[in-house]
Design a protein around this nucleic acid. Structure first.
Lengths: 148, 148
DNA sequence: CTGTCTGCAAATCTTTTGCACCTAC
DNA sequence: GTAGGTGCAAAAGATTTGCAGACAG
């Protein structure tokens, strides 16, 4: 996969006259090798790279994350924890999130019916949806048991 | 309304052995007098109070907003603008938001069908939903016209 | 009285930015 | 060669916190 992704990214950069650099390549590779559904912060990523002796400044990590978000290769999520979480979107279908506020566990859901209704709501208002965010916050089954 | 709300708040404080103070009363009154659907930041509120010669420190404004959020008298929203927006929830039914990322206009929607599906999704996972957030980001009809 | 609040200023924390140097194209 | 990228350290901006004095119950 990585090879294909790298090619894709390279083309996207070229199309916008942006440069393909070592840091960008390293960061992209690292992110694309995360497993599906992995949510990480800028700091997580920076730390992972540091541990692999890839010393890239935090500023560049942030700049590249913003770039990748624009390119829609990753998505930025706010799980209400005061910092952004990112998730690889290449080869991943869109989905929404269920967040346990007790243990932090995140699961996903996707429902065509909801999406359809959503589209109709927007249409009625002549509103063009660029993206949406749908999150359920609460307690997962494990934590509910513990608390009971 | 304000009188009833003040009474309610007073009781909620009493139940938790918290004190009913001047600043809390002033802030609560100010918020409860906002019109339905008004979204304001901590800074907005602080500024409004300052203009009315009610000098309350920003720290207290933040502390009281957190308190009121806990008491479910207001709701905190993240519209992706780097700061929290608050909204009076007393005498307001639950609703979700549509946010124009161009002009900042916020409208509301509520759909029973979506809520029902949501509940079923959570039930299937044995997840207890405390609260949810459902937002559509995009361009409102006015802005879409301008851009076209 | 005494446990809470408040105001103030300082601290915190994440993210962004200015700038000098570097490098891809 | 030059526009764009990087690293560093500083700045920014929202929110929280420590502490001393004030106050509600």
């Amino acid at each position: 996969m990585t090879k294909k992704v790298r090619e894709q990214f390279k083309n996207q950069l070229k199309a916008k006259q942006l440069k393909q650099t070592k840091p960008r390549e390293i960061i992209t590779d690292e992110i694309m090798s995360t497993k599906a559904g992995d949510h990480f912060t800028a700091d997580d990523l920076w730390d992972r790279l540091r541990k692999k002796k890839k010393n890239i400044s935090k500023a560049t990590v942030y700049r590249t994350l913003n770039l990748l978000t624009q390119e829609k290769m990753i998505e930025e999520h706010d799980f209400g924890r005061g910092q952004s979480y990112y998730e690889r979107m290449v080869e991943r279908p869109h989905h929404d999130h269920i967040i346990c506020v007790l243990c932090g566990k995140i699961s996903e859901f996707h429902n065509e019916e909801i999406e359809k209704i959503q589209t109709n709501i927007a249409k009625k208002e002549k509103f063009t949806v660029y993206y949406h965010s749908h999150k359920l916050f609460g307690s997962c089954s494990k934590c509910s048991k513990k608390g009971a």
